[in-house]
């Protein structure tokens, strides 16, 4: 057992005790911290220096020659946008960006000039009041020329077999035929996407009908369900509207509800009448309308008929053309129509 204790310290000494490295490391660390803090402060300072531009577009590359249009989720409106975009690009030399957006979101984007124009609006009184009347950031661009109408529809083959179904008073008679597992013994009325304006619950309640709304939740689901019923020739009742490209594929017959009178839908809880016919309208960002030059003028002039819109919509939905291709085809065949839209 080694018992002797060493008398001397044989440790090799490497370097000075407080090695230089320690000092430099400390200094380096301090420097690093200082840099980080300074950097953070600089960023803060920079960003605080200037207020951000509020109206800046959220899409890059926008120039004065760029027009941004919304693409709503339904095909009819896609047709508007596609044709307008095609003409803006090819006749007026603009660059067009399209942005897919929900309707209410589109209003907001319009107000902040993230988009320049909405070409088909089915009526958003709340937003219209807020942005057009109060904040004046959005202005009307006139009518699109297409008239929209919402209503209750049954398939033609069913209406042919039971002609009286087209009167709401007789709907209860057929409730059983419309019933599904979802509607729990009552007749089912198929509802669409939550986007859409609907007073159906109130109408059913106020007219005392033996119906129950079943919410498809999306237009795609509703269309799929309709097609499925049609394929099987089953009876069904659905909330539906025109213009709609599916109407060209599937014959639907509207059920007559108590006639619409001005103001009968003023209180949503007491509605007991049909939906009105709505002239669809265009809205432009206020600044764009003022400074948008030819593009703004063109979009204000843009107006066409339900049939014309449907023609393009069908190319997209039925023939599966891309919106651009459909627009190109329509533009080629309808020069007389669109010539009138171009600003002089």
């Amino acid at each position: 057992m080694p018992t002797g204790s060493p008398t001397g310290n044989t440790r090799p000494t490497h370097g000075p005790r407080p090695p230089r490295g320690a000092r430099t490391a400390r200094a380096r660390r301090a420097a690093r911290t200082a840099t980080a803090v300074a950097g953070a402060l600089a960023v803060l300072a920079l960003s605080a220096c200037g207020a951000a531009e509020t109206g800046r577009s959220q899409r890059a590359g926008d120039t004065e020659r760029t027009v941004t249009l919304t693409v709503p989720s339904w095909v009819g409106a896609q047709a508007n946008t596609a044709v307008a975009a095609y003409l803006l690009e090819n006749e007026l030399g603009y660059e067009v960006r399209t942005q897919q957006l929900g309707e209410v979101l589109a209003w907001d984007a319009l107000s902040r000039s993230d988009v320049d124009a909405v070409l088909e609006d089915w009526g958003h009184p709340k937003e219209e009041k807020r942005y057009v009347e109060e904040r004046k950031t959005v202005v009307s661009g006139g009518d699109l020329g297409v008239t929209g109408h919402i209503g209750w529809y049954v398939p033609k083959y069913f209406a042919d077999a039971h002609p009286d179904v087209t009167d709401w008073r007789n709907l209860d008679k057929y409730a059983e035929e419309f019933a599904t597992a979802e509607s729990g013994g009552k007749g089912q009325i198929l509802e669409g996407s939550p986007d859409y304006v609907t007073h159906d619950e109130a109408i059913i309640r106020n007219l005392g009908l033996d119906l129950k709304p079943v919410y498809a939740g999306s237009e795609a689901a509703q269309i799929t369900a309709i097609r499925k019923h049609v394929a099987q020739k089953k009876p069904f009742l659905t909330y539906w509207w025109t213009p709609q490209w599916l109407n060209a594929q599937v014959d639907l017959v509207e059920v007559k509800l108590p006639a619409y009178r001005e103001g009968c839908d003023a209180d949503p809880a007491k509605v007991a009448c049909a939906y009105p016919r709505t002239p669809l309208r265009k809205f432009l960002n206020a600044d764009f309308a003022k400074d948008g030059g030819k593009a703004a003028a063109f979009l204000k002039n843009f107006t066409w008929t339900t049939e014309q819109q449907n023609e393009v919509a069908l190319m997209i939905a039925d023939r599966k053309l891309s919106p651009e291709a459909a627009a190109e085809e329509w533009v080629k065949d309808n020069e007389a129509v669109w010539k009138t839209w171009l600003p002089k």
């Binding site: 209410v104 979101l105 937003e127 979802e182 996407s193 939550p194 986007d195 498809a216 939740g217 999306s218």
Partner: peptide, 21 residues
């Protein structure tokens, strides 16, 4: 997502909140 295919209830409400603002 269920709300988009007929689930209704809360899912539908969430979608509705977004799409109607």
């Amino acid at each position: 997502v269920g709300g988009l295919v007929g689930g209704g209830a809360l899912g539908y409400d969430v979608v509705k909140g977004l799409s109607r603002g």
